[in-house]
Nucleic acid binder design. Sequence first.
DNA 1: GTGAAAGCGCTAACAC
DNA 2: GTGTTAGCGCTTTCAC
Lengths: 331, 331
Amino acid sequence: MSVTIKDVAKEAGVSVATVSRVLNGSCNVSDESTKKVNETISRLNYSPNFLGRNLRKCETNVILVIMPTSEHSLYSKIVMGMQSYASKVGYDIITAVSYSTSTAEIRQMNMLYNRTVDGVVLLGTQFDADSLNKLAENYNVALCCEGIHGANVLTVAVNDEQAGYDAVCALIKKGHRKIGFIGTNISAISSTDRENGYLRALREHDIEVDPRYIYKETYDYECGGRAFEYFCSLEERPTAIFAISDLLAISAIHTAENMGVRVGKDIAIMGFDNISMCEWMMPTVSTVEQPCAKMGEMVVAKLIENMNKATKDNHYYTVEHKVILRQSTGD
Amino acid sequence: MSVTIKDVAKEAGVSVATVSRVLNGSCNVSDESTKKVNETISRLNYSPNFLGRNLRKCETNVILVIMPTSEHSLYSKIVMGMQSYASKVGYDIITAVSYSTSTAEIRQMNMLYNRTVDGVVLLGTQFDADSLNKLAENYNVALCCEGIHGANVLTVAVNDEQAGYDAVCALIKKGHRKIGFIGTNISAISSTDRENGYLRALREHDIEVDPRYIYKETYDYECGGRAFEYFCSLEERPTAIFAISDLLAISAIHTAENMGVRVGKDIAIMGFDNISMCEWMMPTVSTVEQPCAKMGEMVVAKLIENMNKATKDNHYYTVEHKVILRQSTGD
DNA sequence: GTGAAAGCGCTAACAC
DNA sequence: GTGTTAGCGCTTTCAC
């Protein structure tokens, strides 16, 4: 077995308590003891066993982040923000991917129940508001990026309705009045609220909502292309399209180019999220940026605060989004 | 505090030992006791504390995967393979991103030293062979995807030299003899060995190696485009380019198209990794595929085997790669 | 088939 | 400033 605090104590000629004090930076240790202990620690190459420490302290200083997917997304940027903050305050971030399935998510949540982690951040979840509320009574849970209506759980996200509104207003300002919408049938705030923003933008500019200009399926890549083909089948095609994700927008752009439609010239297409691919595409893709790093830092900071609180902060914090215009809208 | 094994025992009117036996599926428990205990567990909503269990058993059943970046879809596919195998044998996979910095990597490795995890898989590392060898004496460590010359550590990866060779042979077979190479100055097997494969392919086909056709910088996206501009500045341009990563190839393709060079017609470009964007690009990108899921499963399986072994398996396992020809090479 | 009790490695309260 | 010791929640040996 590996070397323990006992071994260090014996070797250094002090008690385990003194070693523990040195490890935890207590000031009530003489310089001499501190030196002896530190020297012994490095000589024996000792590393404290966190299972013992954590069991004793009832905390692990680890936060689990559950995300629906790890590919082509803004999640990696959010996690970077989380890690940057967490490392500053002595926490570790670990991640798990649920592939948007509740079986995986439920299994991963076990790490919370069995005290392997101190808290969980959900970047999108299959849990409903009731389950989350119950969960939050006993555990430290937060939502990030994707809120849940009716959940009284700490949440950090953009204002999706306003963001959808701003995106569509940008298109209207460029002279478009026939604006297609690519959304999903999935009841997620990021989908429904962005659609509501689209609708409000049209209404406020006296543009009649044409249900034929609304195409909804899923988040899957292929759906963007299918949406584009559908719009092209209409006698009166939209001159601009707002998609609720960059992936859907990119798929639509590819299909457009394959059909000989010049994106940015013949049609304007706008996405959402500002994933890195937006800048790698030709044309580069207009989109709505979420402040990923900031969201990550913020949610972790507030989650850690909650851990030491009797009454938990369960606010819905809104962070600023930003419309970015690039070639796909003719900019 | 939360409910413990003691509470369950008291409630069920049995000893903690009996509860423990039920939890761990021991057969030496009467049906009656089992029923009573299980009923109490679900009534109290008890979940065993893994810190206690793990401390006692000196194992956590968790494997940490450290990766240089999370945006590279290659890694997410590998991790999926790991997870699929791990969940079958009762292990959990957690991930951490090092951003190719040794500070982050060293910090993350603490989870190994302090027994938070049972083993670590490194998908690329800043550690040198000596450090890894020393590490592997006391801990369960494996490399995946990116081997280290001189490291006697369990490794699963493709044969990068052969893969580079095969890629360039595919270009030669299509009639190319002026073949540019986009690599890096970074001393990593995936870079140096693919370059060696490129050189061998030329030599074996009596093509003189022209140092002007070799461009090396870093893995960053922009470098692919810069490489392409450089090649265009030569009086005699290459007719084909082999890049050691899809990202570099894609960057080169974008620059080419921007310069009016038709990729797949005027020039052939081949990448490496087969990230999903290869199929989304226009033209679709020829590349060398690594069997990601298989690599992930294999390395985790062998790592777990090592945990219960006196003398550890430290072989370098090679898995099959596959050249995939698409539009960017005129296919 | 079941229970008592030791002990995994650590921290912290208490005594000196 | 330092040491002794109880105990975090659990598994497992040993008695019975």
